[in-house]
């Protein structure tokens, strides 16, 4: 049983590390900031998620597991918000995504906040 749990957490942790590495590699390789956001969310979701689940298996039913769950929930809760805020800030500063067609650019640009509605 213990060996089984060990194998499972090995697999999960290595999987998490692999996803994080791919995400970090994507941050280097992809072309613009919007594309890199997808790579970053690889780290924020499965990267950290699998590693934490692997460690939860090792910790068993203790307060450590509870705290791991709390950290994981917090990250899953906040990382899309941070990413979205970043995307909004980029659009507001006229950093638009690199896309194929002009209509798509327009679509992205149409989300720019008008200065009049800024403060409210």
């Amino acid at each position: 049983m213990a060996a089984l749990i060990d194998i499972a957490s090995w697999a999960l942790i290595l999987g998490g590390v692999a996803f994080s590495l791919i995400g970090a590699y994507g941050m280097i390789k992809l072309s613009d900031v919007y594309a890199r956001m997808h790579a970053a969310s690889l780290i924020d979701t499965l990267g950290i998620g699998l590693i934490f689940i692997g460690m939860m298996l090792q910790a068993g039913f203790t307060i450590v597991t509870v705290k791991l769950v709390l950290v994981l929930v917090f990250i899953l809760f906040t990382s899309p918000v941070a990413t979205h805020a970043l995307a909004r800030a980029a659009i507001n500063e006229d950093v638009l995504p690199v896309v194929d067609t002009e209509t798509e650019r327009q679509m992205a640009a149409s989300n720019k906040t008008k200065s009049s509605e800024f403060g409210t």
Partner: peptide
């Protein structure tokens, strides 16, 4: 009131 900052606001309301 429906604003584009709404995501930030709602999530922060829950977090604070």
């Amino acid at each position: 009131m429906m604003h584009r900052k709404i995501i930030l606001r709602i999530v922060s309301k829950q977090l604070i």
